[in-house]
Design a protein around this nucleic acid. Structure first.
Lengths: 296, 296
DNA sequence: CCTAACTATAGATATTTTCAATGGTTCTCT
DNA sequence: AGAGAACCATTGAAAATATCTATAGTTAGG
C-alpha cells in the first residue's frame, strides 16, 4: 500500500471531490486522480464511485477511509512528538554516576536542571565506576559522571569537570581525632573500612598507598559511603572518603576528618561518554548545567 | 513525513541493522541508509545512533518507532480488510424495495443468500416506490426492487425480473365473493381501500381504471398492505393487491380474490439501479440470487 | 442550450528511488 | 597483532514514479 496514494484517496474521501482534495494537498488535480486510481489498481478494489457528478465512497472505500484517518492521525501525532522533543516538552536524560558524584554532587544540580526543563525525564543510575563504565559501553547512558581511578575504555571519552578530595575520617573518640597532622605511617596500625574494589575512591586510595610502599589492614568493605561513615562514627575502624560526603557529619561532629601528610588524595571527577555519541540538545544542556554548576 | 522513509527506519529499528532491514524489505542496503538519513533530515532529528558497530535508537527514534509500529499495523489490518471484502468475509448489500417486493418476494431469497454469505450484512429498506427511487438517486442503495408504475428517472436503469399480478380482494361475505366473473363496471358501486399514490400497485390500478374511463370510490388509503387486507376481511371495502401477498389469507379464507375481466393488472417487478453504478462482486452475487430465485 | 465546474487523459519534465560497485570501519578469530 | 568477514556510507548511473500543463469530455444549473 503506497502512502502517497492513500493520502490522496483520504483527501478525496474527506472532501468528496478530486479538485478540492488537490487544492488541499497543494498538488494538481490530475495527480490526485492518478494516485487514487493507482491505489484502486493496487488493491484491486473500487474505492470511489462517481454517480453523475457526485462522488461517493464505496463500502471498501469507507472502511479504508477509517483506517487512513487513523494512520494520518498517528502521523500528525508523531510529528508533534518530534516537535515536542525539540521544544523540550518531552525528552529524557539517561545518566550514570559513581557513588560520590551520584549522591553528593549531582542531585542538586539535576534539581535545578529539572526546574528549567520540567517536562524532561531524568533517569540517574548510581553504581560503582566499573559498573557505570560497562553500561556506558552498552549505550544505556547518555553520559556519566564518575571519579578518577579506573582504566577507561578506549571507546569512551572522559574529561575532568571538577576535583574532589578524599580525606581520612575517624571517630571523634579515636586517638587520631585530636592530632593536627597524620602521616602515612600512622595508617599502618589502623583498621580500615573501605569501599569495594572497582570504586573510584578505593582505587585512588589504594594506588596512593601502594606508591608509598605501605600496607594497610582492611577489615570491612561496604559498597555504600553512608554505611562506612556510620561504622567509623561507631569507632569500628577508620576510612578514606570524599570530603564532599561529610557536610552533615562535620557539622554534627559525628566523625573527624583529617588530611594525610604527603599523600595526594585529590582526584578528578570525570564526565564520561562514548566516543561516537552525538548529544541531543537536551543532553548538551544537561551537561552544561553539570559542568558549570559543579565548579561552585 | 515520507512513509517509505518511515518504513525503512521502522525496519532498521526492528532489526537494529541496516543490512538486515534491507533484506527484509527486499531492497538494497544503500537504499535503506539513504532513506533513513532523509527521514532524519526531514525531521531534523537523529533517530539512530551507531556506537562502534552496534546500532541503537535514540530517544526520538524509540518514540517514533512506536508510532511507526502502530501505523504499519493499521496498514496491515487495512490490507486484510480489503482481502476480507473480496473473500466475502465482510461486506454489505444496501437494498431498497417496494412494499410488495420487500415483504412478499425478497425476504426468503435474501435468507438463502445470507446463508451462503453469512458474514455479509444485508440492509433492506422498504418504502414506497417513489421514496426508493429518490434514495437510489442519492446512492443510498446499491440497487432496489420495485413494482412497475412510476416514471423512472433517466439516471436509473430498470430491468424486469418477474411479473406480479394484482387481484381484486373482497370479504367472503361480500356479494362479489361468489361471482365467477367480475367486470370493470362492477367496480363502480364499490367502496375501495387502496394504497397511497406513489405506490406501484396504486399507480398500476389507477392507470388501468382511467384507461377504461371508469371512476371508482376510494374511501380509505393505507400505506400498508396488511392493514388493507384486514379492512377488507372486515368488509369495510374492497381492494386490489398483489396476488403474492395473499397466500395465508387464501388458505384461511379470510378474503376472496378475483380477477377482473378485461382489465390487465399484470405488472412488472423491476430491478433498478443507478446507471453509473459499478457492482462489486457481492452485489452481483446478490442480484443473481434475486433474479434467479424470484422466477420460481 | 450554453456556461461553469469537475474529472480524465496525454505528453513532457522533474524528482525520487533504486541498484551495483566500492571504500572505510569495526569486530572477530586465529 | 593481523587477516578476514561483516557492516554501513558513498558514488554515479539507470529506472521508476510523481508531477505538471494543456486539453478533452461530462455533468449540473441557469
Amino acid at each position: 500500500m503506497n502512502f502517497n496514494h492513500l493520502r490522496s484517496f483520504y483527501y478525496v474521501g474527506k472532501y468528496l471531490s478530486f479538485s478540492e482534495a488537490a487544492k488541499n494537498l497543494y498538488i494538481s488535480q490530475p495527480t490526485v486522480s492518478i494516485q487514487v486510481r493507482k491505489l484502486e489498481e493496487d488493491l484491486q478494489t473500487k474505492l470511489i464511485e462517481q454517480l453523475g457528478k457526485k462522488i461517493y465512497l464505496t463500502d471498501a472505500g469507507k472502511r479504508l477511509y477509517n483506517y487512513a484517518s487513523e494512520i494520518f492521525k498517528l502521523t500528525r501525532e508523531a510529528n508533534l512528538m518530534i516537535n515536542d522533543i525539540s521544544d523540550f516538552n518531552i525528552g529524557q536524560v539517561l545518566l550514570g554516576a559513581g557513588t560520590t558524584a551520584g549522591i553528593y554532587l549531582l542531585p542538586e544540580l539535576l534539581g535545578s536542571f529539572k526546574a528549567e526543563y520540567p517536562k524532561v525525564e531524568i533517569k540517574l543510575q548510581i553504581g560503582s565506576s566499573k559498573y557505570i563504565i560497562q553500561r556506558l559501553l552498552d549505550n544505556e547512558f547518555d553520559f556519566a559522571v564518575i571519579g578518577e581511578g579506573l582504566v577507561i575504555d578506549l571507546d569512551l571519552i572522559s574529561q575532568s569537570i571538577t576535583k574532589d578530595e578524599l580525606v581520612l575520617i575517624v571517630s571523634p573518640n579515636h586517638p587520631l581525632a585530636t592530632r593536627h597532622a597524620v602521616s602515612i605511617l600512622d595508617l599502618c596500625n589502623e583498621t580500615f573500612i573501605l569501599r569495594e574494589r572497582g570504586s573510584s575512591s578505593r582505587e585512588i586510595f589504594e594506588n596512593a598507598i601502594v606508591k608509598n610502599n605501605i600496607k594497610i589492614n582492611v577489615a570491612m568493605e561496604f559498597n555504600c559511603v553512608e554505611a562506612i561513615k556510620k561504622a567509623v562514627a561507631a569507632n569500628l575502624g577508620i576510612s578514606v572518603v570524599s570530603n564532599s560526603s561529610l557536610k552533615l557529619e562535620k557539622q554534627l561532629n559525628v566523625v573527624a576528618s583529617l588530611k594525610i601528610k604527603d599523600l595526594d588524595l585529590m582526584r578528578n571527577i570525570y564526565l564520561v561518554y562514548h566516543k561516537d555519541k552525538e548529544f541531543t540538545n537536551i543532553i548538551k544542556n544537561c551537561i552544561r548545567y553539570i559542568t558549570l554548576g559543579i565548579e561552585n
